[in-house]
């Protein structure tokens, strides 16, 4: 089944890399939305439904942790799984992200295989 994904990162190059990694992981995507920070992502979600969100942590305006804390406020996004993709690799960051509601955590740099390993179980849980 094709999914709709939202990729949130302040680097447009990284957003394209993440999108390519999802395709290389074998995911069929009907639509891919992009946002440059958490506030833009919330605006996207007000208007659109998605099946998966991949989100950086360090971003201007609204960072990734604040974004996932605010997700329950958006009707369209209450149960959408979020996987963090970030350079922040400490256990403290992982624990903080998971306690905020993230369902997965991928450290940059990453391979498409690592993306697949983290994303597929998250999507399987959802279906």
């Amino acid at each position: 089944m094709a999914i709709r994904a939202l990729i949130v990162d302040d680097s447009s190059v990284m957003r394209k890399i993440v999108e390519r990694s999802l395709l290389q992981a074998g995911l069929e995507m009907s639509q891919v939305f992009q946002a440059g920070n958490g506030a833009e992502a919330l605006a996207v979600l007000e208007e659109n439904r998605v099946d998966l969100i991949l989100c950086d942590i360090n971003m201007p305006v609204m960072d990734g942790l604040e974004f996932i804390k605010r997700l329950p406020e958006v009707e369209n996004a209450k149960d959408v799984p979020v996987v963090m993709i970030t350079t922040e690799g400490s256990e403290a960051h992982v624990v903080q992200a998971l306690s905020c509601g993230a369902r997965g955590y991928i450290r940059k740099p990453f391979t498409p295989e690592q993306v697949k390993e983290h994303i597929l179980p998250v999507l399987a849980d959802r279906s």
């Binding site: 680097s11 190059v13 922040e88």
Partner: peptide
Amino acid sequence: SDALGEIANMVAGNFKNKISGLSE
């Protein structure tokens, strides 16, 4: 520019993740 910025960001992040206590 965006690509080079991301490379520096990832090298710096990956470096600090290799030293216990520095990452956080």
